[in-house]
Design a protein around this nucleic acid. Structure first.
Lengths: 196, 196
DNA sequence: CCAAACTTACTAACTAGTCAGTAAAAAGCG
DNA sequence: CGCTTTTTACTGACTAGTTAGTAAGTTTGG
């Protein structure tokens, strides 16, 4: 048995995380059951409960696992030129998700559960803060270097995040990848109009 | 058009629609059960099944009921001056939802189920088309009257819809009504920058 | 009287989670 | 080293609860 007090310091079970990922993409969050994760895992449901006491624990660990990978991909953007860097970050947020529509669907489902699941809302909020911090830093850097107008960086960041989340939502709800493309174009228009 | 004999277009049971509305706001979509709707209705679960064969039928009828009311509220915007009308429409889309956060939460939950429920996706898609049509008409009217720049009206409309959906999503996921306010400001900035 | 509008009682399926037992690997030890 | 004990990583069977939906019988209003 795993001591719950050690849980946040213990490493996630990679095979179970992968199984959860596959089950989530296949069935969606609403129809995600321990049984289905166990089937992907290739073992019994009790084997899952051996590592994670409750379904909530498992899903919280899975969200950590997912968002950690997402943060890593954002962190890998290496250009320091503000204009180029901002465009690359927006690509990461709006172009890369096009590769994995099933995951985008499941992620919106989980996001919509944030008001009911404290563990979810905490993690999504923290993730949002991080991305906002990255965007704001680039914008402030650009303002300092004189390539961007001296605008309200906090608002400009939130505006871009709004466009990003709008594109993500529309791509899922309206079942058209074009939602992300429209958002990508709109984000660039916003940057051109407000920051230069 | 549509076959009027089709079951899903028969008149909804007002009391059941109201009960569904209350149950949805109280428990959210994920925990919405026939039993809970029946409790709000004040009758047995079988009484619900007397009017609606399946849960899916009931929810499809409820979505029709909800979206019809939403469309009516949009339709009530009466100004013909393009600039004023566009601002009033954006208020309707981004300010009015602030009055009912619980409904906004439940609506995002239902929207996130669109990829799995044909009945949902159909209705949300139709609703989106209608709002887009209204926005596009105003923008084209403004272009014709010379108060707006001669831009790509279709893209400008989609851009505004992206900002609207981004604000809605962020208000729910991040639990801050400020998400809608940021979106409202961003929408006006977009209009100012691109249409004038 | 009769049809519409129910109720009560039920079922079949599915859910998360528990429990007792087990095989094998690891650790302790003389 | 060789033997015992403990721990890890499970399995299979089970519980208790919830779900949508049904069937048969009952009340009620025109």
């Amino acid at each position: 048995m795993v001591d719950p007090s050690d849980r946040e310091f213990s490493e996630p079970n990679e095979a179970i995380m992968q199984a959860t990922y596959r089950a989530l993409r296949e069935y969606g969050y609403a129809d995600l059951t321990i049984k289905r994760i166990a089937e992907e895992y290739g073992k019994s449901t009790a084997a899952i409960h051996y590592y994670y006491d409750t379904k909530e624990d498992l899903l919280a660990a899975f969200l950590d696992y997912l968002l950690e990978r997402f943060v890593d991909s954002i962190h890998e953007v290496e250009t320091t030129d503000p204009e180029k860097r901002l465009e690359l970050l927006l690509d990461e947020l709006l172009v890369k998700p096009q590769e994995n529509p099933d995951l985008s669907i499941a992620l919106l489902e989980m996001r919509s559960q944030a008001p009911y699941k404290k563990a979810f809302s905490q993690r999504f909020q923290q993730n949002d803060e991080y991305i906002r911090y990255m965007l704001k830093a680039v914008i402030n850097h650009g303002i300092d270097e004189g390539v961007f107008e001296d605008v309200d960086a906090d608002h400009a960041t939130r505006a871009l995040m709004t466009i990003v989340d709008g594109g993500r939502t529309r791509a899922v709800v309206l079942d058209e990848p074009g939602g992300l493309e429209t958002a990508r174009r709109t984000a660039s228009e916003y940057v051109d109009a407000m920051l230069r």
